[in-house]
């Protein structure tokens, strides 16, 4: 996963997650506060520049992570830009490009890109395990945290199983035609489904063997300079929000 690689390998890996989350939150607020395209572009550029230059995330990788979201934005904006006229007399349906629609596209795409840049800043600089630790400090229900921890740890186990099964099936021409592909995929998913119970049972036995029946706690990394980082993030975030408000 590209995001995971960046999250562990960027320059701001050791910066307090609370500070990074605060800055990302300010980015979200700023992108919702920016009401003109000019302000939105400024917010997007600033957030992207901080991620590229500050955290040292490669630009190519950044754009590859954002690509699927661009696809969603493009198709949705297409339907925002064109207005559908259901009651025209001659034809049953007619489409027209309206100025109001185009204005809406400007507004929505500016806001979406700003919010996306804020999200990417957070996820490309902060590993998920740090974010889960942050959620624990924010008093998230223990049941949800437990599901998250187990989900995160089992994710890679399942990915590995999927990868191995796909390789074995492909080697036997399991994906040669779309009919075979559906059959192979069904077999793969059924196999994984059974593994859900087997692996959960194994984890349960392992936990019982260690007398664990309560929360799953792990050592959490400590971050030096948390206070300084949070102060810097608050200052940066305020600048971002002020910029969005002033330019609007």
């Amino acid at each position: 996963m590209l995001i995971e690689q960046c999250a562990y390998a960027n320059r701001w890996r050791r910066v307090s997650p609370a500070a990074k989350a605060l800055f990302a939150l300010s980015g979200l607020v700023a992108s919702f506060a920016a009401s003109t395209p000019m302000a939105a572009v400024a917010v997007v550029c600033l957030l992207a520049a901080v991620t590229w230059i500050g955290a040292g995330v490669p630009v190519g990788r950044y754009l590859r992570v954002a690509a699927p979201a661009f696809f969603f934005l493009a198709t949705s904006c297409l339907s925002l830009a064109f207005s559908l006229n259901l009651n025209s007399d001659g034809q049953a349906l007619s489409f027209q490009l309206t100025p109001a629609g185009l204005q809406k596209v400007d507004e929505v795409s500016g806001r979406s890109l700003g919010a996306l840049a804020a999200l990417l800043f957070l996820v490309l600089t902060t590993p998920l395990i740090d974010l889960i630790a942050l959620l624990r400090r924010l008093k998230t229900p223990e049941v949800l945290l437990e599901i998250m921890i187990l989900c995160y740890r089992m994710l890679f186990v399942f990915s590995d199983a999927v990868h191995d099964t796909l390789t074995a099936q492909s080697a036997r021409l399991g994906y040669a035609t779309s009919r075979l592909a559906l059959r192979s995929l069904g077999g793969l998913a059924a196999n994984l489904t059974v593994q859900v119970w087997q692996r959960a049972h194994d984890l349960h036995v392992a936990a019982q063997a260690r007398n664990n029946d309560g929360p799953l706690r792990f050592l959490e990394p400590t971050f030096a300079h948390t206070g300084r980082d949070v102060a810097l993030a608050a200052a940066g975030g305020s600048v971002l929000i002020a910029l969005a408000v002033v330019l609007s």
Partner: peptide, 15 residues
């Protein structure tokens, strides 16, 4: 045993 099952089920759904 259910507590392990749900976490594993979430990972399964994600994959």
């Amino acid at each position: 045993e259910q507590r392990m099952l749900l976490g594993v089920a979430a990972a399964f759904t994600f994959v």
